[in-house]
Simulated scan of single mutants.
Amino acid sequence: MDLTLAIVLVAFAGVFLISFMRGAFGGGFAIVGIPLLSTVMDPVTAGGMLAPLFVAMDLYALRYWKASTWSKPDLVLLVPALVIGIGCGYLLFRLLDHRAIAIVMAAITLVFVSLWFLRGGEVTVQPRSTPKALAAGFTSGITTMVAHSGGPPLAMYLLPLGLSKEIYAGTTSLFFTVGNATKLVPWLMLVQPEAKVWALMAICLLAIPAGIWLGWRLHGALDQRQVYRACYGLLVVTALKLLWDGVSGYL
């Protein structure tokens, strides 16, 4: 991969967009920035480039999403399941049919969002469920390892709890901080980025502070209802992207 100006600008914009989503909603919607990267590099190279950048985003985002914004009762269940899911995802990375996983995950997400809209699109409060939390964490671990798309399973567990917008974003942020740190080495082992990719990573690091700060400012400007509607809307975007990736892979 040659480091042309076009590649640098597109990659920088993609990392900025992902950082913006990280600051606004705590993480989980990285896939919305990946289409930009896929225009200048193959998905595996993009995944390898993003893995270290995700960790840098996470560390910087902790300035805003501090311990007071974490839902500890949920994280106690979600995080161990996430780590196990990442381990399984790594072992199955070359065996799993990524296209089928993308299609199934997209279908489940679209059904989840559709049911929410049919119920009136209101912020609800449902009781916690240990089995649901473990399933969400484990599934998110597999999908984040395989396709950097761990957001939908986590959102499908957290959003129905009706957490405050700060607690939702902070919990999501810490969840993916652990997840991205856990999958960093496996991704680098699978991809083994070349020197030019590392150079591109260094350039894209400069996009992270501004992206996260602007996203955090947007989060502060939105009320609870608007944040939840935005998250459900982003789930639709994520699902459609996954559906496209899966279906186009068979064509």
Rank of each mutant, 00 (worst) to 15 (best):
residue 48 G to V: 02
residue 201 M to S: 14
residue 149 S to F: 00
residue 228 Y to G: 09
residue 16 F to R: 12
residue 131 P to A: 14
residue 81 A to E: 04
residue 84 I to E: 03
residue 82 L to W: 00
residue 53 L to I: 09
residue 230 A to V: 15
residue 220 G to M: 04
residue 129 S to E: 14
residue 155 A to W: 01
residue 214 L to R: 13
residue 66 K to H: 11
residue 86 I to S: 10
residue 10 V to G: 04
residue 35 P to I: 15
residue 191 V to M: 05
residue 206 L to K: 13
residue 113 V to D: 02
residue 94 R to H: 13
residue 36 L to N: 11
residue 30 A to H: 01
residue 125 V to D: 14
residue 22 R to Y: 04
residue 180 N to Y: 04
residue 172 T to W: 05
residue 149 S to D: 02
residue 90 Y to E: 11
residue 237 V to D: 08
residue 168 Y to G: 10
residue 27 G to T: 10
residue 217 R to C: 09
residue 9 L to M: 12
residue 31 I to H: 03
residue 5 L to E: 06
residue 77 L to V: 13
residue 74 D to R: 00
residue 20 F to T: 14
residue 79 V to E: 01
residue 191 V to T: 10
residue 211 G to N: 10
residue 210 A to F: 15
residue 191 V to E: 00
residue 125 V to C: 15
residue 218 L to Y: 14
residue 187 W to N: 03
residue 26 G to C: 03
residue 223 D to Y: 07
residue 3 L to V: 00
residue 134 L to T: 08
residue 132 K to G: 13
residue 125 V to K: 15
residue 235 L to F: 06
residue 120 G to L: 02
residue 165 K to R: 12
residue 230 A to F: 14
residue 34 I to D: 01
residue 109 T to C: 08
residue 35 P to Q: 15
residue 147 A to T: 00
residue 70 W to P: 02
residue 208 I to T: 05
residue 222 L to V: 06
residue 60 Y to A: 10
residue 98 H to L: 15
residue 233 G to V: 14
residue 67 A to I: 11
residue 101 I to W: 02
residue 40 V to A: 09
residue 89 G to L: 08
residue 197 V to M: 13
residue 72 K to T: 07
residue 14 G to A: 10
residue 199 A to T: 06
residue 71 S to P: 07
residue 154 L to Q: 02
residue 211 G to L: 08
residue 119 R to I: 03
residue 223 D to F: 06
residue 150 G to W: 05
residue 169 A to S: 15
residue 54 F to P: 10
residue 175 F to H: 14
residue 242 L to W: 05
residue 148 H to M: 01
residue 190 L to R: 08
residue 101 I to G: 09
residue 214 L to N: 12
residue 62 L to G: 10
residue 131 P to S: 14
residue 195 A to Q: 12
residue 103 I to E: 08
residue 132 K to E: 11
residue 48 G to W: 00
residue 195 A to P: 01
residue 30 A to Q: 01
residue 135 A to L: 15
residue 115 L to Y: 07
residue 140 S to G: 04
